[in-house]
Design a protein around this nucleic acid. Structure first.
Lengths: 204, 204
DNA sequence: TCGTTTATTGAATATTCATTCAATATTAAA
DNA sequence: TTTAATATTGAATGAATATTCAATAAACGA
């Protein structure tokens, strides 16, 4: 219970930064704007984040944390069952809950920073590694998939998920969106299906 | 031969904008900086691009044009042959020539703008549609693939390519990069293989 | 060659930016 | 209660921002 004020204020500031980024785009958010939005002087923000880069790093940590939360329910579900039902897994992986607690625009703005900031790049990489490992451990819990190369399978699945996440962001028409979504779900389903067939026929 | 000066200057400005974006990141490039870089007053830039948004739109058109060029050799190759060799196609699709004539950081910076600018979003969507159609027409030229759903197959292939393009940008270690690249190539190869097998066995 | 359009310049604008600083208020420790 | 640390304020900084404008130079069509 050291400096609870400090931590709460920092959270509040990051949260305000996120709100505004969502509304106006990250590159258009200034310290002054955050201050006005939260009803505090810019100097107070600078007190907790001595320069803007630190503020941005804080936002990114927040974003990446949120992003991870999307997969929480999947983990809970499948780590109890010790059995992977492909269609269920696919539906969870592509569930669009992420749209509610997460802003794609901010995510990609931060991602773009990856190319000129090593620290940010490392953070993003860490996230992606963690997500793959999570899926791997889910697959490892299944009696069938665990006999195959689960790391490889997780890699193949996530490249489709991320490609889909990227591409679908461009599509606004709901019907078209759902049509494409179905394709990519099927594609991942196919990966799981093929893998389990290969494993089972190896057994004979 | 109307106003050749005008068009040349505009190109020059966009090109300077691109150079600086590559170096310092798009959001850090100002009109003044472009001017200094090209040895011209900011007011001249404003003469050709009356506001910054138009300048950004110009850059994006340039970027998307460049992006398309990556696939030019693939098109040429396969539109002559009237036959798709899966391993050859895969190698071309994943060839990293793009790294030479194209900057990923700028591409994703522009992509991030997609979320708050309808015009930009439409441009990006148009590009992605065009790329898929190109691949579709390549597949349509092949006696085997043309009997299947080429649009669907193109969609599935590109979601892997784009997921890979996104994900591999995070990886700097060459060995790791190549290991992952191999996985994604194999994944696309698999898609082509499976499709042709399905078509051929339907024949019997 | 004259007149008009276009290209180019350089100076000036108000606004916004991140950041600094000294002063005050609040909290926590002694 | 005194002291020290932290939180908060508001004013001020200079640098950078996009954009405007009036003036000059160059190119071009008649």
């Amino acid at each position: 219970m050291k400096s609870t004020i400090r931590e709460e204020r920092k959270k509040e500031i990051i949260s305000g930064f996120y709100d505004l980024s969502r509304l106006e785009g990250m590159e258009n958010v200034s310290i002054a704007k955050i201050g006005k939005h939260l009803g505090m002087p810019p100097s107070l923000i600078m007190h907790y984040f001595p320069n803007k880069r630190l503020l941005v790093l804080g936002l990114i940590a927040h974003i990446l944390h949120q992003y991870q939360l999307i997969y929480k329910p999947i983990i809970n579900k499948f780590e109890k069952d010790h059995k992977v039902y492909p269609d269920l897994l696919v539906n969870r992986l592509f569930s669009r809950e992420w749209n509610l607690l997460f802003d794609d625009g901010v995510f990609f703005s931060c991602y773009a920073m990856t190319f000129r900031d090593e620290t940010i790049k490392k953070e993003y990489k860490k996230l992606h590694l963690k997500l793959r490992n999570t899926l791997k451990s889910i697959l490892d819990n299944d009696p069938v998939f665990s006999r195959g190369d689960t790391a490889l399978l997780a890699e193949k699945i996530f490249v489709v998920i991320e490609g889909a996440y990227y591409y679908l962001s461009l599509i606004e028409d709901e019907k078209e969106y759902n049509r494409k979504l179905k394709i990519f779900k099927e594609q991942v389903f196919q990966l799981l299906q093929t893998e389990s067939q290969l494993i089972l026929q190896d057994n004979d």
